[in-house]
């Protein structure tokens, strides 16, 4: 590991020179922006409907965002390496039913369940990683295909049954608070985000994801194990999606053949990551932004209900938030510059 070249020893989103400083400034900016936005939406809603600010509602909004939060971290890791993972939803579903049935029928210990979901997720992530990094199929196509394949497996595994009751240890984790307003699930979500942040910014493999996402050709020439790192991002993404499956199971108390895929978690998790400031061109963004993006989505959508906006407009709300976040993040100008630059070869 010590044989790694010098540029990676630089500060976190290990880019080079002024652009790196600009990028990391922008990052912090986005997180502050999101925090302010969350406080603004929350404040206005509480002023209009005092119940919005109740500990119970805050706890609910936070707990409800954790599944998306963990998946947003998945997406962040993959997108940083210029990939995308459309299969997180069925991976979540397979993990949820994979431990949900043993939990329901044989009271599977929750720590064992944790181990199992991580293994299930990692195994499915290996499938994606193999197709992307070894075979060389573009990520969007790979995960589009595994979305259908994993989704089918989820159906086959459930064989028409559904998980309808979970042991109390699971249920407590899914709905209890540490202190009023702070659910246990949020602690798990925060731990995942912190772990991912540490991994991405303080470890060599993590920082090489940034380097590869930023310029994989240069990273390759610098001797980074590009394919292994890309492979690893999909395994990480799958593993976290598996964990999200356990969170989903505990939070909703149920799981069935369409858990995950039916509530559009693929797109919502990508949306959260993008709102959080991760850019599709790779190399820019971090899991804290994605997590805040997930919280922001949850708070904003709940605020829509309090504002008596009919629920059919919820998807539109998500769409508008994505556009606003992107325009506010200045990605537009960034991209336009890239478009206009003479060396703008598209690969």
């Amino acid at each position: 590991m010590s044989a790694l070249p010098a540029p990676l020893d630089a500060s976190p989103p290990a880019l080079v020179g002024a652009r790196a400083r600009f990028a990391s400034n922008a990052l912090r900016h986005r997180e502050v922006q999101l925090l302010l936005a969350i406080l603004l939406v929350g404040g206005v809603s509480t002023a209009l409907h005092p119940n919005f600010g109740s500990a119970s509602n805050i706890s609910f909004m936070l707990a409800d965002s954790v599944t998306t939060m963990v998946l947003a971290v998945s997406q962040t890791v993959v997108i940083l390496g210029r990939g995308i993972d459309l299969s997180v939803a069925p991976v979540l579903g397979i993990a949820a039913i994979g431990v949900g049935f043993p939990a329901q029928d044989h009271h599977l210990n929750i720590l064992l369940a944790l181990l199992f979901v991580l293994l299930i997720g990692a195994a499915l992530g290996v499938g994606n990683g193999f197709l992307v990094a070894v075979v060389g199929i573009p990520p969007i196509i790979t995960t589009l295909a595994t979305l259908t394949i994993y989704g089918g497996l989820q159906f086959i595994f459930t064989s028409g049954q559904e998980v309808i009751s979970i042991p109390t240890s699971y249920g407590n984790l899914g709905s209890a608070d540490v202190v009023p307003g702070v659910p246990w699930l949020l602690v798990i979500g925060a731990a995942v985000v912190a772990g991912a942040y540490f991994m991405l910014t303080r470890t060599v493999p993590g920082r090489s994801i940034y380097a590869i996402g930023n310029n994989s050709d240069a990273a390759f020439r610098a001797g980074l194990p590009v394919r292994r790192v890309i492979f690893a991002t999909y395994v990480i993404s799958g593993t976290l999606a598996g964990l999200a499956g356990l969170i989903y199971l505990c939070h909703t108390g149920s799981a069935d053949a369409t858990s995950g895929t039916d509530s559009n978690l693929n797109l919502t998790s990508i949306a959260a990551a993008l709102i959080g400031g991760t850019t599709l061109r790779g190399g820019r963004g971090n899991p804290v932004g994605g997590a805040l993006g997930a919280v922001f989505l949850s708070v904003a959508l709940t605020a829509m209900v309090f504002a008596r906006i009919p629920p059919i407009w919820e998807p539109a709300g998500v769409g508008v938030l994505i556009l606003l976040a992107v325009i506010a993040g200045g990605e537009g100008t960034h991209v336009r510059k890239m478009l206009q630059s003479a060396g703008g070869a598209r690969r």
Binding site: G83, G136, P138, S216
Partner: peptide, 10 residues
């Protein structure tokens, strides 16, 4: 979009 190439450049 065009840059979702994953490891393609290498």
């Amino acid at each position: 979009m065009s840059l979702l190439a994953g490891a393609a450049p290498a």
